[in-house]
Design a protein around this nucleic acid. Structure first.
Length: 588
RNA sequence: GGGGUCGUGGUGCAGUUGGUUAGCACAUCGGCCUGUCAAGCCGAAGGUCGCGGGUUCAAGUCCCGUCGGCCCCGCCA
């Protein structure tokens, strides 16, 4: 038999109809002479009523029903008696009086009830992921994910993009994250790597003339996990030829507008604000600022460096910075609360944080005696201080001040509830530095990736001041999360070689690892660039979740295990032999 | 690699300065019950306290190791 409706599809208009439903038993309320069952599928729930006066045999069979049994029923829809309507249920105005019941499959007692506010630890949920995914909230997240992916495909198709697949078995490359390796059976002792992203392939496709490419693609990075980091994750990968940075931002912004309109029915304003990396670091101490609230970092070095306070003097003399945050209305913080803030900074490796409460008579602080009234006034103006505010001050190197105050700012955002709900603040971060110095490796490393083009006016500095060279790289930041990042690529093999040599990648090594790309660049490479979205993160934000695990069907734990299927696992000696591998005992 | 926190019937938790028979809720099983929607009422069963070692007259509790969940640092172009 075939179902006539889903468990979320019936309403008053179906009254009187005979229907056939299939689904899972969510809940049984047995009154002895009358049994209520909620039947569930991914479309919703419907209340079933079993009444012995309607069909005694069916009623008797209904006594056997238990949670998660799979059943098929046939019965008639009727409006519920007055006062019995359940307003929390889409189908709450009706119920189905069951005439025939078939148990399609029994179920063991589930380890937890399949309800939204589930009473189980995440560990249990992951072990029984198939049951967890049966819950409506989880289904909602995966449905949202599907709809976002479909919106992306439709939008990009309309914009003339082609979806092209690239290999999952590729060459291991230096730079970037640790690769997942796949041993080759045919070529013993050699390995494929799973892609960290399809970067090289998509650039190759540009050279091949597929001037608008996209792919919703799995990527792999063998690094430690976080709430927002999984070893395999999905990117919306995009690349375009004959474009400048602005053209890519334009497409991306219109795509985001489309997604928010379709998913949340929200109109997003564009163009999105643009902030340079330097500005983001200076104002928010972070390259992914959460702009849902203000409280910027304020540089007060010039005002306080001439005070009698030795630490300020010394910091300024040594080229450091004195920075401040003005926390609105936090003058009521207790000594204990302020001690906790100080400890927070100490835990990050800082030397602590100075504070001043602003009362009716000005600053209440151990710093007060070092300040002239003019200095205090100047600080009040620069920090936009009002009575009742708390001022926090850190003196250290510029990088430290930015980091500590940036973290403090985020801490206040959460603990003072400064972040409005259902608010979405996009911002582009641009002009990233090309290189960072890696102390451990004692060389420059690419901040984005080694194919990123320098800003035109900075090209000369590649030879003189590589640390000052800015890149044509851009991140899209949403509510403090990096949701997309990209760059304009180098399309000149000359500049590409120069960048490799700055990264201390030898000619031989470059040839060995990226030789085909370097060669391809000499065969008519158009100017090109692109961007990649962290799809999981975007979905997480859209779904209002705090963890990627809630928007991935089968995620790994923080120890990179899958609790349901128990991967990774050992393999047989035969499998190892086929691959020419031997396992070393790494213990001891 | 490091730090924090947690691990106790099927599930979620409590368990005091180490001390009698490890307690509660939900689920499960049995009984009663015709308007519930977290149904209700009565009763029952269910536990090597993650695992291994140690201290002690005595360990769920203290110590060491180990495995696992979560959060963070490092790491993640």
């Amino acid at each position: 038999m075939k179902r006539t409706h889903t468990c979320g599809g019936l309403n008053k208009a179906n009254s009187g109809q005979n229907v056939l439903l299939q689904g899972w038993v969510e809940n049984r309320r047995d009154h002895g002479g009358l049994i209520f069952i909620d039947i569930r599928d991914r479309y919703g729930k419907t209340q079933l009523v079993f009444d012995p006066t309607l069909n005694d045999e069916t009623f008797t069979k209904a006594k056997e029903l238990r949670p998660e049994y799979v059943i098929e029923i046939e019965g008639s829809v009727h409006e519920r008696p007055s006062g019995m309507v359940n307003p929390h249920l889409k189908t709450g105005e009706i119920e189905v009086s069951v005439n025939q019941l078939a148990i399609l499959n029994k179920a063991k007692t589930p380890p937890f009830l399949i309800v939204d506010d589930v009473d189980a630890t995440e560990e249990t949920r992951l072990r029984y992921r198939y049951l967890d995914l049966r819950r409506a909230v989880m289904q909602k997240n995966l449905i949202l994910r599907h709809r976002v992916a479909q919106t992306m495909r439709q939008f990009l198709d309309q914009e003339n993009f082609l979806e092209i697949e690239t290999p999952y078995l590729m060459k291991s490359t230096p730079e970037g994250a640790r690769d997942f390796l796949v041993p080759s059976r045919i070529h013993k002792g050699k390995f494929y790597a799973l892609p960290q992203s399809p970067q090289i392939y998509k650039q190759t496709l540009m050279i091949s003339g597929y001037d608008r490419y996209f792919q919703i693609v799995r990527c792999f990075r063998d690094e430690d996990l976080r709430a927002d980091r999984q070893p395999e994750f999905t990117q919306l990968d995009v690349e375009m030829a004959f474009v400048r940075e602005e053209d890519i931002r334009d497409v991306v912004e219109r795509l985001m507008v489309e997604i928010f309109a379709r998913i949340h029915n929200i109109k997003i304003e564009r163009p999105f604000p643009v902030m340079t990396y330097d500005e983001a670091m200076a104002k928010y101490g972070c390259d992914k600022p959460d702009l849902r609230f203000g409280m910027p970092i304020v540089d007060i070095t010039d005002i306080v460096k001439h005070t009698e306070f030795k630490i300020f003097q010394m910091t300024a003399e040594q080229g450091g910075m004195i920075g401040a945050l003005c926390v609105k209305g936090a003058a009521s913080y207790s000594r204990k609360q302020i001690d906790l803030l100080n400890q927070f900074v100490l835990d990050m490796g800082g030397k602590g944080v100075l504070n001043a409460k602003v009362g009716a008579d000005g600053w209440e602080s151990s710093l007060k005696k070092f300040l002239t009234p003019e200095q205090e006034q100047a600080l009040n103006e620069r920090l936009h201080v009002r009575e009742g505010d708390l001022i926090l001050i850190i003196a250290a190197s510029k990088a430290e001040v930015q980091r500590y105050l940036g973290e403090l700012r985020l801490k206040f955002g959460k603990q003072e509830n400064l972040i409005p709900e259902n608010s979405y603040q996009h911002v582009w971060i641009t002009e990233f530095p090309m290189f960072e110095y890696d102390d451990e490796a004692d060389r420059f490393v690419a901040m984005h990736h080694p194919f990123t083009s320098p800003v035109d006016s900075d090209v000369e500095m590649l030879d003189t001041n590589p640390e000052l060279v800015r890149a044509k790289a851009y991140d899209l930041v949403l509510n403090g999360h990096e949701v997309a990042g990209g760059s304009i690529r180098i399309h000149s093999s000359e500049i590409q070689s120069k960048v490799f040599s700055l990264l201390k990648i030898s000619k031989d090594e470059a040839q060995e690892k990226f030789g085909f790309l370097l060669e391809a660049l000499q065969h008519g490479a158009p100017p090109h660039g692109g961007i990649a979205f962290g799809l999981d993160r975007l979905i997480m934000i859209l779904a209002g979740r705090q963890s990627l695990r809630d928007v991935i069907a089968f995620p790994k734990t923080t120890a990179a295990l899958s609790l349901m299927d128990e991967s990774p696992s050992g393999v047989s000696p035969e499998q190892l032999k086929d691959l020419g591998l031997r396992i070393e005992n790494t213990k001891g």
